[in-house]
Design a protein around this nucleic acid. Structure first.
Length: 468
DNA sequence: ATGAATGATTAAAC
DNA sequence: GTTTAATCATTCAT
């Protein structure tokens, strides 16, 4: 009967997933031993000794001894004596220790695991299914794509938790069965009431549930760590790629008078930024990230305009090239083409000037406006600004090119105004307020005349709907 | 190591 | 819902 051996092994210590059950698991000593006077009868002493040591014997030995024990002539007498003693000592389970009070900490852990979706009903199948589902719905919701990684990891934890829990449960049942068998067997040689067995089972279950609590505890910890690492995105903040920042800055400085991109514009910016960065490790940039960026940018720009002047000039000049080119194209177009078909001229590919004239025009414009020496003062910046405005508002009113150019007017305006105030700002006086910012520091509503919606856009531009 | 830059979060206001 | 202002936490540059 190898069951005996297995019980012995089980009693020696149960090892589960690294946790070993030690101490407290041993069977309680048979009751009433200390009630017997020493050396009452040699036979009894022998039998007791055999009972005590039977578990140490090998299988065959034990089998033989047990047989001998059961056939011993004194056995019935000893049994009744043991029964009597046991009754007298009255150790027969008092109160059965009431039902274990629900441990508040255990309840807390249970609740948390349930709330985290670790111990609750399985939703979404396996980890792969969950991840796939998250990825599938990613296009619709930013949340799920952001948290798909988190969910995958959570499912992992959940799986580990469940398998471990099952293992514990199984081991607990196995162990209980073994102990019960052992006790039943022993009940033939010593008196054991069903109550006692019940109590033993209770003890075993308590031991195992304390181990389960450890498991729950560590699972909770794991979930907490996961939470803090994944849900708090600040922990894994990555800087945007150079290109993405450039795109965002371009938009910002070319819409300086009203740097509040519409939802649509944000989406487009996010798409653009994501495309340009798609190859790299850099995460795709979401609409909410664009919103964050603009929020940060606005407040930081406003807070310390001086610090952003260089950058502003850079981007303003950069887009000013586009604007200038657009204007030039428009002018040329209006001169050479029929005003009724301005589009054909305006849609002239940007690659042209980006290839052959971007460099020269860029430096030209930059030098012209900002003055490479840094001391160049634009005496008639206001005139230039006005001329620009009239260019846009009057000469081409009604023509769609004017609408398109409008979005660049901010840029030119900015370059001009920034240039005008450049030395002052560098001197530490940041009192000067650039166009688009009112005295209170708010972006006033520059009433852009019907020009905000541009039906024809250059390849590099983002749909700019400044209404709203 | 240290401070600046920067993306994200938060509360409060609209 | 969005925006502002303050703040946090990380990354980058020195």
């Amino acid at each position: 009967m190898d069951e005996q051996a297995r019980i012995m092994q089980a009693l020696g210590g149960v090892s589960l997933a690294g946790h070993s059950i030690q101490g407290g698991m041993a069977l309680p000593p048979p009751h009433g031993h200390d009630g017997i006077d020493d050396g009452r009868k040699q036979d009894i002493g022998d039998i007791l000794h055999q009972i005590m040591t039977i578990t140490d014997q090998s299988l065959d030995e034990a089998q033989a001894k047990k047989h001998g024990l059961n056939c011993h002539r004194m056995k019935p007498a000893l049994f009744s004596v043991l029964c009597e003693i046991k009754e007298k000592t009255g150790l027969s389970i008092r109160g059965a220790q009431e039902e274990d009070p629900p441990d508040p900490q255990l309840m807390r852990l249970d609740n948390m695991l349930l709330a985290e979706g670790v111990s609750g009903p399985e939703k979404g199948g396996g980890s792969a299914a969950a991840a796939a589902a998250a990825a599938a719905s990613g296009g619709a919701s930013d949340n799920s794509i952001e948290h798909s990684d988190y969910r995958a990891k959570l499912t992992q934890i959940r799986q580990i938790y469940h398998t471990e829990l099952e293992k514990y449960e199984q081991a607990c049942n196995e162990f209980t069965t073994h102990v019960m068998n052992l006790l039943r067997e022993q009940s033939r040689t010593r008196p054991i009431s069903p109550k006692e067995i019940e109590r033993m089972v209770g003890i075993i279950h308590r031991k195992f549930s304390s181990i389960q609590m450890q498991l729950k505890q560590s699972t909770c910890e794991a979930v907490m760590i996961l939470r803090s690492r994944f849900l708090d995105a600040r922990r894994k903040r990555r800087n945007f790629s150079k290109q993405a920042t450039e795109i965002l800055n371009e938009y910002f400085y070319s819409h300086l008078s009203n740097p509040y991109p519409s939802e649509e514009a944000k989406e487009e910016l996010a798409k653009k930024c994501s495309i340009t960065v798609s190859q790299g490790v850099g995460s795709t940039i979401t609409v909410s990230q664009v919103s964050n960026w603009f929020g940060n940018k606005r407040i930081r720009y406003k807070k310390n305009i001086g610090k952003f002047q260089e950058e502003a000039n850079l981007y303003a000049a950069k887009t000013a090239v586009t604007a200038a080119h657009a204007v030039a194209a428009a002018v040329q177009n209006s001169q050479t083409n029929s005003p009724t078909t301005p589009n054909s001229g305006f849609q002239m590919k940007d690659e042209e000037f980006q290839l052959d004239s971007a460099e020269s025009k860029n430096t030209l414009l930059t030098n012209m406006f900002t003055g490479s020496s840094g001391s160049f003062n634009l005496p008639n910046s206001g005139d230039m600004f006005l001329s620009m405005q009239s260019l846009n508002g009057d000469s081409y009113q009604g023509a769609q090119v004017g609408a398109n150019v409008q979005s660049q007017v901010d840029t030119l305006r900015h370059v001009i105004s920034q240039t005008a105030g450049y030395s002052e700002a560098l001197g530490g006086n940041t009192m000067y307020s650039p166009h688009g910012l009112d005295a209170n520091g708010g972006w006033h509503d520059t009433t852009t005349p019907s020009a905000v919606i541009s039906p024809t856009e250059g390849p590099g531009s983002v749909h700019s709907d400044t209404s709203n």
